[in-house]
Simulated scan of single mutants.
Amino acid sequence: ISHFLHIDKQLLVAVYNGYSQHFIPIWNAQAITARYIKNHPYLFFLGNTDPKKNTARVLQAYGIYLKKSSQPLPLLIADLKEEIIDEYLNREGLQEIKKMLYHPGYIPNTELPAVYSGASVFIYTSLRESFGIPILEAMACGTPVITSTTSAMPEIAGPEGILVNPFEPEEIASALLHLEENAEFYQSQTAYGLERVRRFSWENTAREILNIYKEILA
């Protein structure tokens, strides 16, 4: 099978995933997000128990952010039960930040556009991802994204995306503070995200695949 290990790069074509078209800015988001968090705006982290989601370091970063921010925002954590969050907080010695955390558990996909839209920042600092569709979902809702320098995430976030080393909580916290303290940068990230997602759609994915089949059959 060794002859399969050497493939001409010219024969490789990248076909990207898309994102669902119901992810758009929701202007009355609070009507929905009030079910999950009382304070607005807020930071949003979509986590779970998979180690690659980097939950412990996100909580460490949030603890740093709370100490340095002049007007700290609460953190909404989706898809993690309270007892799991307590385990992380106890392990990391971060029990004091719990009063700033909201943890409603599972949030239906149909309500995620409002949750993204109501968030000031979406934190997606995974250790690795094969793609990273939530990056596109948040951008499509007009929410700046902080994501990682690893695996596929830089390619999806693009040249102006906010990229941090996911192993360094200080970097995550610094990115949060920069967005919070620099209104011009924040607005540029919102505009950049909305423009960036225009190149990703399931229609584009299907079109690229169809073009590849046409070339193969030609």
Rank of each mutant, 00 (worst) to 15 (best):
residue 24 I to E: 08
residue 118 G to Y: 14
residue 165 N to R: 06
residue 56 A to S: 12
residue 180 E to M: 01
residue 145 V to E: 09
residue 60 Q to V: 12
residue 54 N to R: 11
residue 209 I to W: 00
residue 30 Q to V: 11
residue 69 S to W: 00
residue 103 H to F: 15
residue 180 E to N: 03
residue 154 P to A: 07
residue 19 Y to K: 06
residue 88 Y to W: 04
residue 148 S to N: 06
residue 30 Q to C: 13
residue 88 Y to C: 02
residue 84 I to K: 15
residue 104 P to M: 10
residue 126 S to M: 04
residue 131 F to A: 12
residue 73 L to T: 05
residue 91 R to P: 00
residue 177 L to W: 09
residue 159 P to Y: 06
residue 182 N to D: 15
residue 150 T to L: 04
residue 12 L to N: 04
residue 24 I to L: 08
residue 36 Y to E: 01
residue 38 K to N: 09
residue 91 R to Q: 10
residue 165 N to G: 09
residue 131 F to I: 13
residue 164 V to E: 09
residue 174 S to F: 07
residue 152 A to Q: 05
residue 80 L to N: 10
residue 65 Y to W: 08
residue 84 I to Y: 14
residue 68 K to M: 07
residue 27 W to N: 15
residue 58 V to Y: 00
residue 59 L to R: 05
residue 153 M to E: 01
residue 41 P to V: 11
residue 148 S to L: 02
residue 104 P to K: 08
residue 101 L to K: 15
residue 30 Q to M: 14
residue 80 L to P: 13
residue 32 I to Y: 05
residue 60 Q to E: 14
residue 48 N to K: 09
residue 24 I to Q: 13
residue 128 R to E: 07
residue 86 D to G: 00
residue 18 G to V: 06
residue 8 D to M: 07
residue 125 T to F: 08
residue 122 F to V: 02
residue 194 L to V: 14
residue 211 N to I: 01
residue 158 G to N: 02
residue 153 M to Q: 12
residue 186 Y to N: 04
residue 43 L to V: 04
residue 119 A to K: 02
residue 203 E to R: 02
residue 27 W to S: 15
residue 194 L to E: 11
residue 116 Y to K: 11
residue 140 A to G: 03
residue 42 Y to K: 04
residue 91 R to T: 05
residue 107 I to C: 07
residue 209 I to M: 10
residue 44 F to A: 04
residue 19 Y to E: 01
residue 145 V to L: 11
residue 103 H to P: 01
residue 34 A to D: 09
residue 56 A to W: 06
residue 96 E to N: 12
residue 152 A to C: 07
residue 60 Q to Y: 01
residue 178 H to N: 13
residue 162 I to V: 11
residue 98 K to E: 00
residue 37 I to F: 11
residue 72 P to L: 08
residue 174 S to I: 03
residue 98 K to W: 00
residue 160 E to F: 10
residue 189 Q to F: 03
residue 127 L to G: 06
